[in-house]
């Protein structure tokens, strides 16, 4: 790892992959620094893992009482909840720190990042990179595995191949939503808490079959803030279930495209925000 970056400026490929490598390097350095307090790290990781367990446990309790919600069984409900949790947890780990943007602006540390020859977005996203958030991913993945096993899924080669694509797309979409809502702080200084209602609220929303919230909400999270592609559409695809809200079945193949669009939109918003910051000085 140490010498990956220590080369003179390279070609196009090098330029394009550099942010990812700088990201990995910064994240690694932070993780190593935090690992100097292993007891504290273990406790925090365990605590974070319990957080995911508690949320999935709530879904379990609700489904145990209900038997089935909107035609989704307990195992299917757990599949939705665990996949959503998994993707949001991974996205939170990768880009969650962007929500601290306002703090970086106020303290002037954004200026410090801007005088370094590395993307400030990468620097913010890796600031105090919290490996402990992996703690959320582990129980979510375990429950997802359990639920996949217990759901009545007609496994085809296509589904096996699609599963990782859907997971990666979901993570990318959730990370984009996280980044974009963080960028709002470029324009409105106190936007952090309001943005939380989109990020954490979106997370809470996607833990249940979206159809229980009614058509209006489903349309909003399909076409406005594309969270329907984080857990909901992938599960409909895996279960071969028609969309209960009557949206076309073709949408379940959209996640990779939505992911690209969402990442592009988030990147543009970041650039716009940074330009705004540099042209207003606030």
């Amino acid at each position: 790892m140490a010498d990956l970056l220590a080369r003179p400026c390279g070609g196009t490929v090098e330029r394009l992959t550099r942010p990812a490598r700088v990201y990995a390097l910064l994240a690694w350095t932070w993780s190593r620094a935090l690992a100097q307090y292993p007891a504290s790290l273990a406790l925090m990781t365990f605590g974070t893992a319990l957080g995911a367990v508690a949320e999935i446990f709530a879904v379990f309790v609700v489904f145990r009482h209900a038997g089935a919600l909107d035609g989704f069984s307990l195992a299917e409900g757990l599949l939705i909840a665990s996949l959503a949790n998994l993707m949001f947890a991974a996205a939170d780990m990768l880009m969650g720190m962007v929500e601290g943007l306002g703090q970086h602006i106020r303290s002037g540390s954004l200026d410090v990042m801007l005088v370094r020859p590395v993307s400030p977005l990468v620097q913010i996203a890796t600031d105090r990179f919290a490996v402990r958030r992996l703690g959320r991913v582990v129980p979510a993945a375990a429950v997802a595995g359990f639920a996949l096993y217990h759901c009545d899924i007609d496994w085809t080669a296509g589904k096996v191949l699609m599963l990782p694509v859907l997971v990666v797309s979901g993570v990318a979409i959730a990370a984009s939503v996280w980044t974009a809502s963080g960028c709002l702080q470029f324009f409105v200084a106190d936007a952090r808490e309001a943005a939380n209602s989109v990020t954490y609220g979106g997370h809470a929303l996607t833990e249940y079959p979206l159809s229980i919230y009614g058509k209006g909400v489903v349309y909003a999270v399909t076409f406005a803030v594309p969270l329907a592609f984080v857990g909901w559409q992938p599960v409909l695809y895996l279960l071969d279930r028609p969309d209960p809200t009557g949206l076309p079945d073709l949408l379940r193949f959209a996640p990779p495209f939505v992911a690209v669009a969402a990442c592009t939109a988030a990147a543009l918003l970041w650039r716009l925000g940074l330009r705004h910051y540099r042209s207003t000085g606030s």
Binding site: L5, A6, P8, L26, A33, V112, V118
Partner: peptide
């Protein structure tokens, strides 16, 4: 305000800086 990383040992901060500026080892 410091350009160093608050929670990291100075040596690690300088090492990170080296990578950011691509200084050969």
């Amino acid at each position: 305000r410091t350009t160093l990383w608050w929670d990291l040992p100075l040596k690690d901060s300088l090492e990170l800086t080296r990578h950011m500026y691509r200084v050969p080892a």
